[in-house]
Amino acid sequence: MTCAAKTDGRCTQTPQAFVWSGKPLGQARSAPASFYTSQEVFQAEVNQIHLKHWIFIGRTDQVAEPNSYLAVDTVGGPVLLTRDQNGELHAFANYCRHRGAQLVEGCGRRQRLVCPYHAWGFGLDGRLLRAPGMEDVPGFDLDKESLIPIRMAEWAGNVFVNYDDSAPDLMTHLGGFPALFASHKVEDMRWVFGVEIPAACNWKMLLENAMETYHTGIVHARTVGAQTSMTFDGEENWAAIQVQSTMTTAVLDKSAPAPFPQIASLDEQAKKGTYFTLLHPTTQFVFAQDCMWWLAVRPVAPDRSVLSVGGCFPKDYVALPNFQELAQPYFTRWESVAKEDVGILERQQKGVSSVLFKPGLLSSRDDVVHTMGEWIRQRIGTAIYNDPF
């Protein structure tokens, strides 16, 4: 899909009941067990996908002030996002150049980053400023021992890193993705919420689950309840569905008006529901009528992942004196629903580990699940996946 029809730079693509590719409905099946359990497959995914594509690590406003930092774990190791004293944004490998100790955890502000092992000190621009005990080392040069930079790019306040310097740039990877959600004005939003949830399941399960509404009336019967969705054509590196509801899906109580109004700039399609998206390989951005949140998945092992959930609101909402009180129902929904999903996916992980597991037929509501599996199969180069599912 290309957003050929645009208004003021906005995509006017219309979703449909479902979009199918690969084997036709009635023949397509879920992936084989090894797709979720094999160390060989997992390592191929790390090498051929995760270390070659853009990884979402957070928002620029999480490091809004000079001399601020944010430490993030990725499949390629710990990353440090900083804003130096001049206001410039950087991404570095989060380890000391001496013997590799992780420099910092969490987030904060400080003039310099001091290694907790041997007290080497680095500026927020990555320069080595001080290396006590190295004065007698012949040829030691502070300027040659700076932190290792990581390729970084930004879209609408969202920051990504890439371990492959030869990979296409971020905007090429995104394609028409930004245009579809332009009316939400994500660049004017502010980060307000974050939580990390360990998950004893394969990373793909978390994202497959996030891109179908088949399960919502069952797994989330007491929270979000049953949902219906429409599917966009998408492009090579992203997919999107829209849950049809004129009211935000970001709160659980539908008996009262939402705490916040709809974003004033929304186009007509955006007013019809909430966009649930998959930005390959590991990020879901959700664009509701009044906010944006994300699920970012970090693969750890074939049967272990970490799910990071974060949320943003328009800056005008965040400035309200009673913002925290108004936003609490959103925070509750984001965390509680994510934990419900993790619970069922941990049971799925146990199920596919059975020596008797056989892939089941997919439903029409599994269309993005099928598309995602094909996207991965085509890239990991493992012979067992030469044939479509």
Rank of each mutant, 00 (worst) to 15 (best):
Q289F: 06
A256W: 00
T282Y: 01
V337E: 15
C291H: 14
V286A: 09
Q324T: 15
M292E: 14
A270L: 01
C312V: 08
W294Y: 08
H280D: 10
Q289C: 07
Y275F: 14
S265G: 08
F331E: 01
R298D: 03
Q289L: 06
A288M: 09
T274C: 06
T283R: 01
P261Q: 02
R333E: 04
P299S: 12
D303M: 12
F313G: 06
H280Y: 03
P329T: 02
Y330V: 09
V309I: 15
A301V: 10
D267S: 07
F276I: 11
G310V: 09
R333K: 01
P257E: 12
W334Y: 15
A270G: 10
P329F: 00
Q289A: 04
R298E: 11
T277Y: 05
N322G: 07
A258N: 04
T332V: 11
K315R: 13
R304Q: 15
C312P: 06
C291S: 13
P302L: 07
T277R: 02
A327T: 10
C291T: 13
Q324W: 12
A270R: 01
E335F: 02
F285H: 06
P314A: 08
E268W: 08
S265E: 11
Q262D: 09
Q262Y: 04
C312I: 08
N322S: 10
K315F: 03
L320Y: 08
Y330L: 00
S265M: 09
P299N: 12
R333Y: 01
F287I: 00
E340Q: 14
G310L: 05
K339F: 05
P257L: 13
S308Q: 07
E325T: 15
E335H: 07
F331Q: 07
D290Q: 01
P329I: 05
A327G: 10
L279A: 02
Y330C: 13
D316E: 12
P257D: 10
V297P: 04
Q289S: 14
S265W: 04
Q269T: 09
T274D: 04
C312F: 14
D303H: 08
W294H: 08
G310Q: 13
A296G: 11
Y317K: 04
S265P: 01
T274G: 00
G311L: 12
A319N: 07
A296V: 09
A256M: 11
R333D: 00
F323Y: 05
D290G: 01
V286D: 14
R298V: 07
W294Q: 09
V306K: 06
A256V: 12
Y317F: 15
L307A: 05
A301C: 03
P257K: 09
G273E: 02
Y275T: 04
P259Y: 07
F313P: 02
S308N: 12
P321K: 10
V286W: 00
C312M: 14
Y317M: 09
F276T: 01
P314K: 11
K315W: 00
G311M: 14
A319G: 10
P281N: 05
K315Q: 13
R304H: 13
W294R: 00
A296Q: 12
Q269W: 03
E335K: 05
V300K: 14
H280V: 11
A288R: 00
F285R: 01
E325K: 06
L279Y: 01
K271A: 01
I263D: 01
F276M: 12
